[in-house]
């Protein structure tokens, strides 16, 4: 079972906030999901089973290392929420 503090810690790691009115429901659903996964593994002997991260056995399929064009600056910045002097502009980094 996950507690509120652990859930809030995970939310912080995921760069998310959990509004107070959502916290109870979130905790219930997340714990339900953990219980479901745990129950699904309960009768399986997984000890010697290798994990599968990726379905295809290919590794390191490289294309030729040739320079290619990049997005023009104005297109790269077209979706920017804020910009300044040809750069993406963000709020100050240091907290007050």
């Amino acid at each position: 079972m996950i507690g509120v503090d652990e859930m809030l810690q995970a939310a912080e790691a995921a760069r998310l906030e959990i509004p107070n009115d959502e916290a109870g429901g979130f905790l219930t659903e997340i714990n339900r999901m953990f219980a479901f996964v745990k129950e699904s593994c309960a009768n399986l002997d997984l000890g010697d089973v290798p994990p599968t991260a990726y379905i295809q056995p290919r590794m390191n399929v490289f294309r030729p290392d040739e320079p290619q064009g990049s997005l023009p600056l104005e297109i790269a910045l077209a979706n920017a929420p804020d910009e300044d002097e040809r750069c993406f502009k963000v709020p100050r980094i240091m907290e007050e």
Binding site: R15, A76, N79, A80, P81, D82, F88, V90, P91, R92, I93, M94, E95, E96
Partner: peptide
């Protein structure tokens, strides 16, 4: 930062 929604905030985090 580069695209999509941005909320008003006092600092980056």
């Amino acid at each position: 930062v580069r695209f999509g929604h941005r909320a008003e905030a006092r600092h980056l985090h």
